[in-house]
Amino acid sequence: MTKHIKITVNGTEHELDVEPRLLLVHLIRENLAMTGTHIGCDTTSCGACTILMDGKSVKSCTILAVQANGKNLTTIEGVSAENEYNHLQEGFKENHGLHCGFCTPGMILRATELLENNPDPTEEEIRWGISGNLCRCTGYNNIVKAIKYASAKNRGIEPASTEPEFV
C-alpha cells in the first residue's frame, strides 16, 4: 500500500506515491536524486542526514517520508543559490571547518537552526548545539570557528579572525 504525499523541498513542490516504510533520507537521496544529504550511521547518532523540516533540524534517517507530508524541507542544496555561499558555507570554507566534508551538510543545517534561535551563541552553546553531529576529521575547533564566523557575519559584524587552527 502506498501513500500519496506532497512535500516542498528547497522551494519546489513534489508529489509522490511512497511506501510507508520509506525513510525520508531515502526519499531525498533516491526519489529526488539530491545526494547532498548523507547517510552516516543510519542510527540517529551521527547527524550526517540532518535537514530542516519546517525550520527545525531533524535527522532524516529516523523520519518516515509519509511523516513529511505537507512539510517544508530544506537540504544543503537549498541553503544558497548555485555557485554562491551563505555565511555558514563561507565560514566553513574560510576556517577549514571541513576536511572530508561528509558531516558538513548536516553541520550546516544544524547550525542554521542554532543561529536562528540564538544569533550570538557562546562557544559552549555552539558545542552543545552541534552535539548530535559527529565529525571525525576536524576535532570540531574549526567548525566552532566557522559557526562563530557566520554568527558575526549574520549580525553585520566583521568576523574576528579566520586563521584556521590545525591540530
Partner: peptide, 12 residues
Amino acid sequence: TKLIADPSVRNR
C-alpha cells in the same frame, strides 16, 4: 532536557 539525546532528536 539538555541531557536527552541531542538538539535534532529533541526537535522530534
